Computed example of a mutant assay.
Amino acid sequence: MSDTTFLNTPQGRRLAYHLTPGTGPCVVFLGGLKSDMNGTKAVHLENWAQARGQAFLRFDYSGHGESSGTFEEGCIGDWHEDTMAVVDALTDGPVVAVGSSMGGWQALLLARTRPDRIAGLVTVAAAPDFTEDGYWANFSEAQKQALETAGQVELPSDYMEPYIISKRMIEDGRAWLVLRDPLPLRFPVRCLQGTADTAVSTATALGLLDHAECPDMRLTLVKDADHRFSDGSCLGLIEEAVAEVIAIAR
Protein backbone atom coordinates (compact mmCIF):
# COMPACT_ATOMS: atom_id res chain seq x y z
CA MET A 1 0.00 0.00 0.00
CA SER A 2 1.34 3.43 -0.91
CA ASP A 3 2.06 6.12 1.65
CA THR A 4 -0.77 8.45 2.61
CA THR A 5 -0.74 11.88 0.96
CA PHE A 6 -2.39 14.99 2.40
CA LEU A 7 -4.36 17.85 0.88
CA ASN A 8 -4.79 21.21 2.61
CA THR A 9 -8.28 22.48 1.85
CA PRO A 10 -9.54 26.05 1.45
CA GLN A 11 -11.26 25.64 4.84
CA GLY A 12 -7.92 24.92 6.56
CA ARG A 13 -8.41 21.18 6.98
CA ARG A 14 -5.76 18.56 6.24
CA LEU A 15 -7.27 15.60 4.43
CA ALA A 16 -5.58 12.22 4.01
CA TYR A 17 -5.96 10.45 0.67
CA HIS A 18 -4.67 7.77 -1.68
CA LEU A 19 -4.87 8.47 -5.42
CA THR A 20 -4.27 5.76 -8.00
CA PRO A 21 -3.51 7.07 -11.50
CA GLY A 22 -5.17 5.37 -14.45
CA THR A 23 -7.76 5.73 -17.14
CA GLY A 24 -10.95 7.65 -16.50
CA PRO A 25 -13.50 8.11 -15.31
CA CYS A 26 -11.88 8.27 -11.88
CA VAL A 27 -13.71 6.19 -9.28
CA VAL A 28 -14.09 8.20 -6.06
CA PHE A 29 -14.98 6.27 -2.90
CA LEU A 30 -17.00 8.17 -0.29
CA GLY A 31 -17.03 6.41 3.07
CA GLY A 32 -19.62 6.25 5.80
CA LEU A 33 -20.04 8.00 9.11
CA LYS A 34 -17.01 7.32 11.36
CA SER A 35 -15.52 5.03 8.70
CA ASP A 36 -12.10 5.61 7.19
CA MET A 37 -10.47 5.08 3.82
CA ASN A 38 -8.84 1.83 4.99
CA GLY A 39 -12.16 0.02 5.23
CA THR A 40 -12.78 -3.25 3.42
CA LYS A 41 -14.87 -1.80 0.59
CA ALA A 42 -12.52 1.12 -0.13
CA VAL A 43 -9.36 -0.97 -0.21
CA HIS A 44 -11.01 -3.77 -2.17
CA LEU A 45 -12.21 -1.32 -4.82
CA GLU A 46 -8.78 0.27 -4.99
CA ASN A 47 -7.18 -3.12 -5.70
CA TRP A 48 -9.86 -3.83 -8.29
CA ALA A 49 -9.24 -0.47 -9.97
CA GLN A 50 -5.47 -0.96 -9.99
CA ALA A 51 -5.90 -4.34 -11.69
CA ARG A 52 -7.97 -2.64 -14.41
CA GLY A 53 -5.70 0.38 -14.76
CA GLN A 54 -8.61 2.53 -13.54
CA ALA A 55 -8.06 5.85 -11.78
CA PHE A 56 -9.21 5.64 -8.16
CA LEU A 57 -9.41 7.99 -5.18
CA ARG A 58 -10.17 7.24 -1.53
CA PHE A 59 -9.85 9.75 1.31
CA ASP A 60 -10.74 10.52 4.91
CA TYR A 61 -13.21 13.27 5.74
CA SER A 62 -12.08 15.69 8.44
CA GLY A 63 -12.50 14.09 11.86
CA HIS A 64 -12.11 10.64 10.30
CA GLY A 65 -9.08 8.38 9.93
CA GLU A 66 -5.81 10.22 9.34
CA SER A 67 -7.36 13.60 8.51
CA SER A 68 -7.32 16.59 10.84
CA GLY A 69 -10.06 17.45 13.32
CA THR A 70 -12.32 15.38 15.54
CA PHE A 71 -15.51 13.58 14.60
CA GLU A 72 -17.55 15.39 17.24
CA GLU A 73 -16.73 18.76 15.64
CA GLY A 74 -17.89 17.74 12.17
CA CYS A 75 -21.16 17.83 10.27
CA ILE A 76 -22.61 17.00 6.86
CA GLY A 77 -21.70 20.40 5.39
CA ASP A 78 -18.07 20.07 6.49
CA TRP A 79 -17.77 16.66 4.89
CA HIS A 80 -19.42 17.96 1.72
CA GLU A 81 -16.75 20.67 1.60
CA ASP A 82 -14.11 17.98 2.06
CA THR A 83 -15.57 15.94 -0.78
CA MET A 84 -15.65 18.94 -3.07
CA ALA A 85 -12.07 19.87 -2.16
CA VAL A 86 -10.59 16.47 -3.02
CA VAL A 87 -12.62 16.02 -6.20
CA ASP A 88 -11.79 19.52 -7.47
CA ALA A 89 -8.10 19.38 -6.54
CA LEU A 90 -7.21 15.76 -7.27
CA THR A 91 -9.34 14.67 -10.23
CA ASP A 92 -9.91 15.89 -13.78
CA GLY A 93 -12.77 15.10 -16.08
CA PRO A 94 -15.65 12.76 -15.29
CA VAL A 95 -15.85 10.77 -12.07
CA VAL A 96 -17.87 7.82 -10.85
CA ALA A 97 -18.85 8.36 -7.22
CA VAL A 98 -19.25 5.30 -4.99
CA GLY A 99 -20.95 6.25 -1.74
CA SER A 100 -21.36 3.97 1.27
CA SER A 101 -23.98 4.83 3.91
CA MET A 102 -23.41 8.51 4.77
CA GLY A 103 -21.14 8.52 1.72
CA GLY A 104 -24.24 7.86 -0.35
CA TRP A 105 -25.66 11.17 0.87
CA GLN A 106 -22.32 12.81 0.11
CA ALA A 107 -22.35 11.31 -3.40
CA LEU A 108 -25.80 12.80 -4.02
CA LEU A 109 -24.61 16.19 -2.76
CA LEU A 110 -21.60 15.96 -5.05
CA ALA A 111 -23.89 15.15 -7.96
CA ARG A 112 -26.10 18.11 -7.11
CA THR A 113 -23.14 20.49 -6.85
CA ARG A 114 -21.05 19.21 -9.77
CA PRO A 115 -23.57 17.52 -12.10
CA ASP A 116 -21.35 18.03 -15.14
CA ARG A 117 -18.52 16.07 -13.50
CA ILE A 118 -20.50 12.94 -12.68
CA ALA A 119 -20.41 10.07 -15.16
CA GLY A 120 -22.23 7.66 -12.87
CA LEU A 121 -23.06 6.87 -9.27
CA VAL A 122 -23.10 3.71 -7.16
CA THR A 123 -24.51 3.66 -3.63
CA VAL A 124 -24.16 1.00 -0.95
CA ALA A 125 -26.75 1.28 1.84
CA ALA A 126 -27.14 4.97 1.04
CA ALA A 127 -28.35 7.08 3.97
CA PRO A 128 -29.56 10.42 2.56
CA ASP A 129 -31.07 12.86 5.09
CA PHE A 130 -30.35 10.49 7.99
CA THR A 131 -29.68 13.28 10.49
CA GLU A 132 -33.29 14.41 10.08
CA ASP A 133 -35.19 11.27 9.10
CA GLY A 134 -33.14 8.78 11.11
CA TYR A 135 -31.84 10.65 14.15
CA TRP A 136 -34.08 13.66 14.83
CA ALA A 137 -37.31 11.92 13.85
CA ASN A 138 -36.62 9.13 16.32
CA PHE A 139 -35.12 11.09 19.21
CA SER A 140 -37.06 10.98 22.44
CA GLU A 141 -38.00 14.23 24.15
CA ALA A 142 -35.20 13.53 26.62
CA GLN A 143 -32.66 13.23 23.80
CA LYS A 144 -33.90 16.43 22.17
CA GLN A 145 -33.57 18.19 25.52
CA ALA A 146 -30.05 16.81 25.92
CA LEU A 147 -29.12 18.31 22.55
CA GLU A 148 -30.26 21.69 23.84
CA THR A 149 -28.63 21.50 27.25
CA ALA A 150 -25.48 19.41 26.63
CA GLY A 151 -25.11 20.07 22.91
CA GLN A 152 -24.87 16.36 22.08
CA VAL A 153 -26.34 12.90 22.59
CA GLU A 154 -24.71 9.48 22.55
CA LEU A 155 -26.22 6.82 20.30
CA PRO A 156 -25.37 3.10 20.33
CA SER A 157 -24.09 1.44 17.17
CA ASP A 158 -24.32 -2.18 16.05
CA TYR A 159 -21.00 -1.81 14.22
CA MET A 160 -18.63 0.26 16.41
CA GLU A 161 -18.42 2.35 19.57
CA PRO A 162 -21.33 4.72 20.27
CA TYR A 163 -21.77 7.80 18.09
CA ILE A 164 -21.62 11.24 19.64
CA ILE A 165 -24.21 13.26 17.72
CA SER A 166 -23.93 17.02 18.16
CA LYS A 167 -26.60 19.69 17.99
CA ARG A 168 -24.55 21.24 15.18
CA MET A 169 -24.73 18.03 13.13
CA ILE A 170 -28.51 17.92 13.40
CA GLU A 171 -29.00 21.61 12.61
CA ASP A 172 -26.45 21.68 9.79
CA GLY A 173 -27.93 18.55 8.23
CA ARG A 174 -31.14 20.46 7.52
CA ALA A 175 -29.27 22.65 5.05
CA TRP A 176 -28.19 19.63 2.99
CA LEU A 177 -31.33 17.49 2.70
CA VAL A 178 -31.76 15.92 -0.75
CA LEU A 179 -35.14 14.19 -0.49
CA ARG A 180 -37.29 17.30 -0.03
CA ASP A 181 -36.66 18.92 -3.41
CA PRO A 182 -36.30 17.54 -6.94
CA LEU A 183 -33.19 15.37 -7.32
CA PRO A 184 -32.22 15.10 -10.99
CA LEU A 185 -29.56 12.46 -11.69
CA ARG A 186 -28.79 12.52 -15.42
CA PHE A 187 -26.43 9.54 -15.45
CA PRO A 188 -26.59 5.82 -14.61
CA VAL A 189 -27.18 5.07 -10.92
CA ARG A 190 -26.87 1.67 -9.24
CA CYS A 191 -28.02 1.24 -5.64
CA LEU A 192 -27.19 -1.76 -3.45
CA GLN A 193 -28.98 -2.53 -0.18
CA GLY A 194 -28.96 -5.46 2.26
CA THR A 195 -32.26 -6.62 3.72
CA ALA A 196 -30.64 -7.38 7.11
CA ASP A 197 -29.21 -3.87 7.43
CA THR A 198 -30.12 -2.52 10.89
CA ALA A 199 -28.66 0.95 10.23
CA VAL A 200 -30.34 1.79 6.91
CA SER A 201 -33.69 0.27 6.02
CA THR A 202 -34.89 -1.01 2.67
CA ALA A 203 -37.58 1.68 2.95
CA THR A 204 -34.82 4.30 2.71
CA ALA A 205 -33.46 2.68 -0.45
CA LEU A 206 -36.93 2.48 -1.98
CA GLY A 207 -37.62 6.08 -1.00
CA LEU A 208 -34.49 7.27 -2.82
CA LEU A 209 -35.39 5.18 -5.88
CA ASP A 210 -38.87 6.70 -5.95
CA HIS A 211 -37.73 10.28 -5.34
CA ALA A 212 -34.80 10.65 -7.75
CA GLU A 213 -35.38 11.78 -11.32
CA CYS A 214 -33.14 9.41 -13.25
CA PRO A 215 -33.50 7.73 -16.65
CA ASP A 216 -31.29 4.76 -15.67
CA MET A 217 -31.53 3.91 -11.96
CA ARG A 218 -31.65 0.41 -10.48
CA LEU A 219 -31.88 -0.90 -6.93
CA THR A 220 -30.55 -4.34 -5.99
CA LEU A 221 -31.77 -5.81 -2.68
CA VAL A 222 -29.53 -8.52 -1.25
CA LYS A 223 -31.25 -10.93 1.11
CA ASP A 224 -29.62 -11.19 4.56
CA ALA A 225 -26.78 -8.76 3.76
CA ASP A 226 -26.06 -6.37 6.64
CA HIS A 227 -24.87 -2.76 6.72
CA ARG A 228 -21.21 -3.69 6.26
CA PHE A 229 -21.97 -5.20 2.82
CA SER A 230 -18.40 -6.48 2.81
CA ASP A 231 -18.39 -10.24 2.32
CA GLY A 232 -17.09 -11.74 -0.89
CA SER A 233 -20.45 -11.84 -2.62
CA CYS A 234 -21.31 -8.25 -1.71
CA LEU A 235 -17.91 -6.96 -2.80
CA GLY A 236 -18.44 -8.72 -6.13
CA LEU A 237 -21.78 -6.94 -6.54
CA ILE A 238 -20.11 -3.58 -5.91
CA GLU A 239 -17.46 -4.37 -8.54
CA GLU A 240 -20.16 -5.31 -11.05
CA ALA A 241 -22.15 -2.14 -10.39
CA VAL A 242 -19.11 0.11 -10.78
CA ALA A 243 -17.97 -1.71 -13.93
CA GLU A 244 -21.44 -1.41 -15.44
CA VAL A 245 -21.64 2.32 -14.77
CA ILE A 246 -18.14 2.86 -16.23
CA ALA A 247 -19.02 0.89 -19.35
CA ILE A 248 -22.13 3.03 -19.91
CA ALA A 249 -20.17 6.22 -19.26
CA ARG A 250 -17.60 5.34 -21.88
Score class of each variant (00 low, 15 high):
residue 153 V to M: 02
residue 128 P to C: 11
residue 248 I to G: 02
residue 78 D to W: 11
residue 202 T to F: 02
residue 230 S to T: 09
residue 225 A to P: 05
residue 34 K to P: 04
residue 190 R to L: 08
residue 198 T to M: 14
residue 46 E to W: 06
residue 180 R to D: 15
residue 193 Q to N: 06
residue 234 C to A: 14
residue 147 L to G: 07
residue 136 W to K: 12
residue 15 L to N: 08
residue 125 A to G: 15
residue 181 D to C: 13
residue 95 V to A: 00
residue 159 Y to P: 01
residue 139 F to G: 04
residue 118 I to P: 00
residue 89 A to Q: 10
residue 117 R to V: 01
residue 225 A to M: 04
residue 241 A to Y: 07
residue 116 D to I: 00
residue 130 F to S: 05
residue 54 Q to L: 13
residue 55 A to E: 02
residue 34 K to Y: 10
residue 171 E to Y: 13
residue 115 P to V: 00
residue 232 G to T: 12
residue 113 T to C: 09
residue 90 L to I: 01
residue 133 D to P: 00
residue 158 D to E: 10
residue 30 L to R: 00
residue 159 Y to T: 05
residue 229 F to V: 06
residue 111 A to M: 03
residue 121 L to I: 05
residue 18 H to T: 11
residue 237 L to V: 04
residue 8 N to M: 10
residue 34 K to H: 12
residue 119 A to R: 01
residue 57 L to P: 05
residue 218 R to A: 15
residue 168 R to A: 13
residue 98 V to A: 10
residue 49 A to R: 08
residue 50 Q to L: 13
residue 227 H to T: 07
residue 76 I to N: 08
residue 159 Y to A: 00
residue 87 V to M: 02
residue 83 T to W: 04
residue 153 V to G: 03
residue 67 S to I: 07
residue 56 F to H: 14
residue 207 G to Q: 07
residue 163 Y to W: 14
residue 239 E to P: 03
residue 159 Y to S: 03
residue 24 G to W: 03
residue 190 R to N: 03
residue 160 M to A: 14
residue 196 A to N: 07
residue 187 F to W: 04
residue 116 D to R: 12
residue 142 A to M: 08
residue 147 L to S: 06
residue 102 M to Y: 12
residue 129 D to F: 13
residue 153 V to A: 01
residue 79 W to G: 01
residue 4 T to I: 12
residue 225 A to G: 01
residue 239 E to A: 07
residue 200 V to K: 02
